[in-house]
Amino acid sequence: MFPTKSLALLVGLSTLLAQVNAHYTFPTLVVNGQTTAAWSAVRKTNNFNSRAPVTDVKSADFRCYTSETRATASTVTVAAGSTLGINSDGTIYHPGSLNVYMAKATNGDASTFTGDGAVWFKVHEVGAVTDGGTSINWPSYNAVGTSFTIPKSLPSGQYLVRIEHIALHSASSFAGAQFYISCGQINVTGGGSGNPGPLVSIPGVYTGNEPGILINIYWPIPTTYVQPGPAVWRG
């Protein structure tokens, strides 16, 4: 038999491993069908090892989660009108919704752009599928990321592209929602003269009290789901 202390240590390590395995990061982009190396075109986040989420929507880490790494990345070229993928380092383990925001580098250089101010606009979202209270399903659950079309009318230039997956399994209490976040760097070519918006600040876009963030997804089964954040800009 194991000594009590050894057994407790094994249980603790097992619990920690389970928690790490239940979490995920988004370290790669998919451009022209090719997946970038991990953390090459995506800024390495604080949780690149722990995979721990952000839960404070007002924290500075809510933007790109890089307060500890101070990371930048290479900037990859993406044509307007083409498909951009953002992949996780495993399946998205928790049920919840997903948003993708972009912000044009006001200094012209995505690698040094901090994303301050009301510069972010939403380009993609994956919410819930409901049937009026019998069931609720999450298309992003068990996926390995997401992909979307860069609007053809998006002006050319360098951008940050930020993904957030909002895990809602513990979201019935304030700050229970878990945000899995990363920011990639892209250079958009062949763009148009569109006017992306509405523009929001990150942090600042959420209070944490939104019905799509503070929610019990299990009981009573929600009859609808309200995606947090602004409307998607499609060009």
Rank of each mutant, 00 (worst) to 15 (best):
K5M: 02
L29K: 01
T15H: 01
Y159M: 01
N209M: 08
A8E: 14
E68D: 13
A79I: 11
W233Y: 15
P230R: 13
Q185F: 00
G208R: 12
A73T: 06
S40V: 13
D61A: 12
I215Q: 07
F48R: 13
P139L: 08
Q178K: 12
T35K: 08
I221H: 01
N21P: 00
T72A: 07
I92F: 05
A128K: 12
I166A: 10
F26N: 14
I86M: 14
Y218R: 04
V200R: 09
L98D: 13
Y65V: 10
R162N: 10
S14A: 15
L98M: 14
L214W: 09
A73L: 02
V205P: 08
Q158S: 06
S40H: 09
S173I: 13
V144M: 12
I163G: 09
G212L: 08
G194C: 07
G90R: 15
S201P: 03
W233E: 06
G115W: 03
V30G: 11
N46G: 11
A71Y: 01
G133P: 01
E164P: 07
H94A: 05
S97D: 15
T77N: 03
P196Q: 06
S97V: 11
P196H: 08
Y159G: 00
L13V: 15
T72D: 06
T130L: 10
T130A: 05
G208W: 07
S147N: 15
F113M: 05
S140M: 07
T224F: 07
I221R: 02
V54C: 05
S182Y: 08
S40I: 10
P222H: 00
D116Q: 12
N137L: 05
Y225L: 05
A18G: 15
T25R: 15
F174I: 14
A231T: 15
T130P: 00
P211Q: 05
N47D: 14
T55G: 06
P228K: 03
I213F: 04
L13P: 02
L214A: 12
A38T: 14
Q158I: 04
D61L: 06
V78C: 10
R43K: 10
A175S: 13
N187G: 05
P230I: 13
F148M: 10
T69H: 01
C183I: 13
F121A: 11
F113G: 04
D131E: 04
G12P: 10
V31H: 09
S74L: 02
S6F: 02
H94D: 02
P222K: 04
S59K: 12
W219I: 07
T25I: 15
A73Y: 03
H124Y: 12
A79M: 09
I221G: 02
N49D: 10
G229E: 07
G90Y: 06
Y206I: 04
L7D: 04
G132R: 08
T91P: 11
A167R: 03
Y218H: 09
V188S: 02
G132Q: 06
D116N: 15
I92T: 14
G194S: 03
F148K: 05
A79L: 11
L10T: 06
A118C: 05
W120Q: 00
N47T: 14
V188C: 07
S67A: 14
P139K: 11
A8F: 04
V100D: 03
T83L: 08
N107T: 08
T15Q: 09
